[in-house]
Design a protein around this nucleic acid. Structure first.
Lengths: 195, 195, 195, 195
DNA sequence: TATTAAACGAGACGGTACGTCGGGTCTTCGG
DNA sequence: CCGAAGACCCGACGTACCGTCTCGTTTAATA
């Protein structure tokens, strides 16, 4: 999402200050009022320093969000052997994340940008979404191998069935995104997933 | 989404021209470049006439979109007696709508606005989303009564299971939103819905 | 400055309210911020009622000012027989008027309008300025007849000599517009006026 | 009348284009229709560039007018030794200037602004009016020293007597602002000025 | 260790759109 | 049928940011 010029001489101080400023501001302001001008001012940085390294406000915000997911490990799902428990962890975690005020602003912002900027959409899918889905698919495959899930499971459908309901309620602002809902939705999905 | 002042003296000519202009422009421009200024110019109307009756660009676009759904009948789902066929109709229709270039722009715009404007989100749910969901719930209830669906069906969960996968793929820009996908997702959902 | 339409049916109540509102507002606001909209609102009158009877804001203000000079007698200068005393009265009166806060706003407004609206300038000269100058000329002629002023006096030059200095200082915002100044200017002018 | 921000980085190109545009437009339009928007457009400049350096339309026009008086010398009156001839030059010059269509628009505009904007009035007096008056006072003092003018001459009164009549006729739109009038007014004033 | 080219902070620039104000015209309704 | 009310089209206001473009000033690799 960045690094076009020589990147060698790039000031780490400036980069960090910009992402930190973006992180602060996205929590203080409605996303529509978040301006590059404000990020630059808050970061104590010239506007050009932002435009040099990022093509758009959305790209800055995306990088700021990536910083939060920055565990160097990569995404893996727990595998306790109990597929139902592990998936419960997954759906509850999803709801927790969508609901955490410190993440929600970022996620809503990304959804907004993804609708309007295909480049950024592609980056989002590649860097965040598909790795997460791959990790889930991996856990599901283990479940299939263990005979806990149906043999002919289509992982894409399965993931959509597990997370689509939650994500769509959240996107549309429908109420009731609770752990109980997570459990009920999981049970429903399992009617298809189970052997 | 409108009608704050006296509304009596309101010019129907202006109202229609504004919504028509919005409809045209939303198909011609990326949503972010759609300005109230441009709508007013295209409609041959003073900006103030827009600001007098709508609080924001999103509200105008929403009303323009409502105009397209304006069948006076209200939303009903077909009931052929064959619940699987009727639901196939539903999910395929959803994909068709999300994919129709003439609707897609409106819908993406609404998703953008809903993330940022709670008022508008509430209006969207009340005027469009919940009526649609009520209609689906109605058809599902008929299916239950006919013994084609499980007796203890929770309609909210059921609807989310049917449409959530499709809507979430669309929102995230994931590929593969085809009729085959619709059928597969429906089959998966039916594993829960069926008795 | 008014009365184009039928004038018969004209509402005296509205006319008076408009002029009163203009008089109030011109004292409360900088002239540039005085709007027909505000006059109409203050007068409890539709804008159209103003536009029906006056061509411009300046015309309303002019009529409002005329109301204040409305002594039905017409302008006459005192004639005590002592020309110096009478002219002192004149120049001191001029300074008093230009300095009276309740007249100053009107007069500055008229000067502004006169620079920009020839119609209004003509009306101002005809209805106010020339009658005043004629009255002064009359008194001067009496002075000439009494042998107190030079026989070949040109009344136009004389009037300009008497009032021009005062008026030009006032217009330009130069300080020192006092009674002492008036007396000194009068003495200077009399060097020309006297026989 | 300008120079609030850093002024170092100020674009001379933009400054000159703005003043030139103002000069053109003030001759093409009635002053009331002269908008900052139009100046910016004509100058090929963003509106903000005007607002950054000038507080009001009047300030721009004033600076544009100053540009015309820009002889670096400073104001001096001719001194031929013949005071009457030199003053004739002065009053005729005044009338010529007030009558020159290329100056008149500027001057009327300044009179309008001075009535309404005290800041601008102060600037006008300081930068233009008082220096001119000082130059005239200088010439008058020389006349006094040469015994051509009365010894106890008050220069302020004298200047008002010389120019007040002309200026007041012009401000009020009274006709007859000719060279003959200038000569007559000068003769009248000299009755006071001469020893 | 000095040179030098880049990235940097600052912020002016030409623009677009914002949301508001008021101008002058028109339409509707009530007295 | 005049007057109140106020919506309408329009143009300008003054502001906020956009993304680009100089300006000096660090700063860090290289010579």
């Amino acid at each position: 999402m960045a690094e076009t010029p020589s990147a060698a001489r790039r000031s780490e101080r400036a980069r960090a200050a910009i992402l930190a400023a973006a992180t602060e501001l996205i929590r203080e302001l409605p996303y529509a009022k978040l301006s590059i001008e404000a990020i630059a001012a808050r970061a104590g940085v010239g506007k050009q320093t932002i435009y040099r390294w990022w093509p758009s406000k959305g790209a800055v915000v995306f990088d700021a969000m990536l910083e939060l997911y920055s565990g160097p490990e990569g995404v893996v799902l727990p595998d306790t052997g109990d597929i139902r428990a592990d998936l419960r962890e997954l759906v509850r975690g999803a709801i927790a994340e969508l609901t955490d005020p410190s993440f929600e602003a970022f996620l809503r912002a990304m959804y907004v940008e993804i609708q309007q900027d295909p480049e950024l959409g592609a980056a989002y899918r590649e860097r965040l979404l598909l790795p997460q889905r791959a990790a889930i698919a991996e856990r599901l495959a283990a479940g299939v191998r263990a005979g806990q899930l149906r043999a002919d499971l289509d992982p894409d459908i399965a993931i959509d069935l597990l997370l689509g309901p939650i994500q769509s309620r959240w996107t549309l602002g429908l109420p009731g995104l609770t752990e109980d809902y997570a459990d009920a939705a999981l049970d429903a999905a399992l009617d298809h997933l189970a052997p």
